[in-house]
Simulated assay, not measured.
Amino acid sequence: MPISPNQGSSAGGTAVVITGTNLANASAVRFGANLGTITANTPTQINVTSPAGHGVVGVTVTTPGGTSNPLSYFYLEPPAKFALSPTSGVEAGGNSVTITGSNLNGATSVTFGANAGTITANNSGSIVVTVPAGTGSVPVTVVTPGGSTNGLSYEYVVAPTVATIDPDSGPTAGGTGVTITGTGLTTTSSVTFGGTPASFVVISPTEVSATTPAGAAGAVDVVVTTTGGSATLEDGFTYVAGPGI
């Protein structure tokens, strides 16, 4: 007497099909001590909705002819999320995040708001997923055979822009204090002049203060990188060679 599926959420509500012989006029299908809800019944098949339960239980069918031997049914506990890392990223998506928790194995989907991510690794304690494109702050929902869970959020960060740098020139020895203006600069993680990292301080979402590193004479690109991506001001700063005598 097969049962399909032989597992489902501990909350119950799983549609289960039991096949066999002499199943007509079934009066009860028990999952352990709990009664399932029979939704259809023929001499060779019973459709039943599982009740709530935990662990591994025996499923028995009772008809006017008696009670069957038990079949094993496995209750799956719902997933629980503990942490999400990182908690933010670019609006274009494509970055990888790790969700840690418990009962996460067999995850069928991870959604960021209304959009599904791509699961790349999964075990009972963690899920690695590629983030889809999106905007704003969205809930993260994990669905497994045991149920679903949310409660964590992910922040899509707008891509930065760089409009001006003042002053826009200085000596090749570096050490020039400059103000970079733009948008989306709050999460700035690096500022480079011609590829060389500079020290910096975030003043506001529209302003970053930086000190130029040393560089060769000539114009160089200034690149500001944030959680939302990178913005480049081409030939934004010009290194000026000192006098020679």
Rank of each mutant, 00 (worst) to 15 (best):
A26Q: 09
N103P: 00
I127Q: 05
S9G: 10
S137V: 15
L23V: 02
G13Q: 11
I38L: 07
S4Y: 12
G106R: 09
T232G: 10
S50P: 11
T187V: 05
N25W: 02
P205G: 06
G194W: 04
T135M: 03
P213V: 03
V220Y: 03
A241E: 14
S189E: 11
T60L: 05
A52I: 07
P43Y: 02
A33Q: 11
G32C: 08
N115L: 13
T186W: 01
V17M: 13
D235R: 14
A26G: 12
T212K: 05
S204A: 12
P205E: 03
G228F: 04
T211E: 00
G94L: 07
E91Y: 04
P243H: 14
N34P: 00
S85K: 11
T141R: 12
G194E: 09
G170Q: 07
T120G: 02
P70A: 08
G215K: 02
A107C: 05
V222W: 03
T67S: 10
S27F: 00
P167A: 06
G32Q: 08
L71S: 10
P70F: 07
N103M: 01
F112V: 06
G89M: 04
T100D: 08
P51K: 06
A80P: 00
G94F: 09
F200E: 09
A107G: 09
G147S: 04
N123E: 03
V16Q: 03
V208Q: 06
V57A: 01
I18G: 10
G125A: 15
T141S: 11
T238M: 08
A210Q: 09
G228N: 10
T62A: 13
E91Q: 15
G177M: 09
